[in-house]
Design a protein around this nucleic acid. Sequence first.
DNA 1: ATGAAAGCGCTAACAT
DNA 2: ATGTTAGCGCTTTCAT
Lengths: 336, 336
Amino acid sequence: MAPKIKDVAKKAGVSVTTVSRVLNGEKYVKDDLKERVKSAIDELGYTPSHIARSLVRKKTNLIGVIVPDVTSSFYSTILSNIEQTASLNDYNLLVCNIIEDTDKELKYLNVFKEMRVDGIIIMHEKLNDEIREMIGKLDIPIIFSSVKPPDQQFISVIIDDYEAAYDATRYLIGLGHERIGFIGGDMRDVTSGQNRYIGYCKALADNGIPLVEDCVRFGDYKTQSGYTLIQELLDCEPRPTAVFAVSDDMAVGAMNAVRDRGLAVPDDISIIGFDGSQLTELVRPRVTSMEQPIREMGTVTVNVLIEMIAHPEKAPKQDVILRHELVVRDSCRRNE
Amino acid sequence: MAPKIKDVAKKAGVSVTTVSRVLNGEKYVKDDLKERVKSAIDELGYTPSHIARSLVRKKTNLIGVIVPDVTSSFYSTILSNIEQTASLNDYNLLVCNIIEDTDKELKYLNVFKEMRVDGIIIMHEKLNDEIREMIGKLDIPIIFSSVKPPDQQFISVIIDDYEAAYDATRYLIGLGHERIGFIGGDMRDVTSGQNRYIGYCKALADNGIPLVEDCVRFGDYKTQSGYTLIQELLDCEPRPTAVFAVSDDMAVGAMNAVRDRGLAVPDDISIIGFDGSQLTELVRPRVTSMEQPIREMGTVTVNVLIEMIAHPEKAPKQDVILRHELVVRDSCRRNE
DNA sequence: ATGAAAGCGCTAACAT
DNA sequence: ATGTTAGCGCTTTCAT
């Protein structure tokens, strides 16, 4: 059996309180006692039980994280930064990977509650009623990262997706493109679905370019869906000279489809992505992308959450909006 | 304050023991009492405290996982499967991302100990003395996934890297290649460093092909290192007609470098990767790779670990060796 | 079939 | 400056 505080106290010839005091770095312990306790701890190989501590302190230093898919470059990068920032602040991560599995999410939310996690980070916006209700009466600080659920009560760390999509489209227009296809996300998603689509539409409208419904498709942000959907766009007459894909994964899928059809990016068609995932630099041509500050997003999310945990009464009422940034690489060119 | 078992007992007009009994699905509770307790639980929105439970049961249902880099396609895929299998068995994951940071790993190992996790999964093999010592006296079941540290005392879920590398090299030889470059890993790593290199050497030797030191480089498994190292191989006279990179990431980096130099894969040079990461299908040409059963690896790791947790006395003494498999795609061709 | 009470390992009044 | 003790929320003998 692992040694407990009582064993240390006995060995050092002091009370458990004294041991607890040196454990928690309190003053009011004479140096010689402190030394005795420390060597007792060393000899016994004692490590305090976080469990017991949590029980009395009513604080677990645990953050529950719900990721849609850890294998995605986008989410894993945010997760990586979440982990780093959490670790820096002595928080540990309970990670749940839900692959569109509502039951699993519900289960994990319940686990988070049982575990008495101090805070929760959620990275998807498809909240059904059950989950909404569960979350609503959870009484644990919750923050959304990179997404914004329709509910006003929750706060998010996001970019302005509307504006980012607007800027991405404008970039294409500025390059002389007028037939610009769109490969969108899930229109049930407010940020990554609706807002990006609206931004695209508005940019066209502001520049007197008519929206061609036939050049618009919606997918699920993944490579395969970009691969599939662009094929329909390539069949349009006249063919778009540029395509805006609302995720880098979809952009890469689209680029592969173009290539597999014997066409070239960007010579035959320009493609711009969205997110700023590592993939943009891995493929050839490298993907021009409207980037989110992914790493910063993870960091900010944790910092805001920790603030909410520390001061639940003054929880922020406003979303945190980070800046998006166009990073030009090689997948778009001027339309002559 | 969240309701506790005592509140439920009071509300239902029974003892806490009875509540505990229905919570844990024991028999010996009359139906009407059971009903009363259940509705009290519902009305109060009571959720048992995992903390308190863990304290008395001396079981946390927590598994600590140490990943070198969650943003890597290879590790995140294993992690995803670890999570899935753990969740299926009611275990939760405490995830630690160490980016070659020994201090952080040490810290986390200590956190795992404090948290009294039931088991630990480690996915890297660079154990320095400090970590080795820490792990040695941890008294928590530990299993290594996809890697094998030099120490005989720990068990691993791995493939036979030597044989896999041998087979990969033989595939290239079978394609008619005789000048076969090698982009290896870290020679301090037994599995992914040494064994793959030795397999490569042995395959050459068995086929009467002399090893050309100049066509061998060692990197860190990442894209950038593949990109850099292959440049030196391309300068060799005569130039290798094929290259074996011991990770898909390095293979992709190498392919990019080849392309950026105006050469083509596989027409000018064949490149075979290793791992079977998602990347192989994402880039063009798609990467022929000696694949590890990544998904199975995560599943098996958790299953074995859970077995070790349940029966610490009869811990497996043998590594679990999974089968590797060559998946032919488009990055290698016959050398005429 | 149900309940009283001890204790899991620790912290935090409170007392000295 | 140090020690005593009462919980934290639950499970689990042991009684009844």
